[in-house]
Design a protein around this nucleic acid. Sequence first.
DNA 1: ACGCTAACGGACGCCCCCGTCCGTTTAGGT
DNA 2: ACCTAAACGGACGGGGGCGTCCGTTAGCGT
Lengths: 209, 209
Amino acid sequence: MVDRLPHTLRSDALDNRERILDAARALFSADGLDVPMREIARCAGVGPATLYRHFPTKQVLATEAFADQLRACRTIVDDACADPDPWRGLCLVIEKICELHARDRGFSEAFMSAFPGAPDVADREYTVKAVAGLAQRAKDAGHLRSDFVLDDLILILMANKGIHMRSTDTQVMASRRFAGLAIQAFEACPQQAPLPPAARLVSAAPDSA
Amino acid sequence: MVDRLPHTLRSDALDNRERILDAARALFSADGLDVPMREIARCAGVGPATLYRHFPTKQVLATEAFADQLRACRTIVDDACADPDPWRGLCLVIEKICELHARDRGFSEAFMSAFPGAPDVADREYTVKAVAGLAQRAKDAGHLRSDFVLDDLILILMANKGIHMRSTDTQVMASRRFAGLAIQAFEACPQQAPLPPAARLVSAAPDSA
DNA sequence: ACGCTAACGGACGCCCCCGTCCGTTTAGGT
DNA sequence: ACCTAAACGGACGGGGGCGTCCGTTAGCGT
């Protein structure tokens, strides 16, 4: 059931592992998380058993496959927080994350499906806090509307996930347009109509932004 | 294969037909279009054969099941076009259609999946023209940003479809918030940053709004 | 060069969904 | 009350995804 302790894979095993991850990344990215495990195996040129030996469940496979994207997310947030202009930082977060999700359908699904109370990203709380801080600073600077809540950001990401196009290029283009509209909606502006109340999306956030 | 000409169903047949439609409406609405046909049959208290006899394909069933919603859509658009204030009309379209989709996941899927070049709604072109006219009037009145295109509306509807919550109430609430943000984004406003270019979503529209 | 064992992958059984056939039931006209 | 045909639904065969077992292959240390 579990790999025993040698901790050092044989060269062919390591090779297969990489090929599986590559195939998974490609298929998840293009078709979402619903691709059959066998399809991934076939595409990687291995048998189903080999796939299951390396990654006992799709969850495990996806987690490994999306490690890069997760790191990218973290980097985006860190960069944004480092920006001296918090509003610019927040805009960057929205634009970059939307684009990341637009380019990788599977990551988008995995990222969002795991949202309410997912035990899978350990530093989720840290990231949430960081973005909340960024948003607060943007509000203080008068660039972000004062009734913005963090749930709005999640709302935008969920919505962005709903945008599906055939070609990746069109997808990214549409997503960019969408991000632009979202930013527009978030920008503080003299004659602003009040928004409908926000639905609670992030499980337990005492003061979300 | 096809029902022969008597044109008058037996009372039990008619009854079953209604029960099937009711079940389909309920299940589609709650769980989307992916519910198995057998589940609908089971829920309606009939055998699979009866279901298939009345509705040979899921497409046919869905079309009949969503007739009400489609009429509601049409009514919303007509009402909006009749509104003396075109901006108010456009806002109503966005709010009402988003809510309609939020309340009925299956309808939302059916409506949007059938979008690029669907041969299924005959008066699609009429509706598109009507909304385009409404948008143009809203622009002329100076309430709708001048770089708005009809594709933006489709974009919003696709995005709205991406918002999924457990309870319908939360779903509607989130969707309302989203519609509010969308309207905010569309509103003409002095210091407006230019949006990224729109991706073509509606197949052949020479001058979309 | 050889053997040991890690690693492989074809094949199996399971379950769920699909669409159809056909023997049985029952509505409704006489 | 009876007969006929409309309508029903259980049951079937096909297809596909799932996760696992086990006989075979081949990497690697000696």
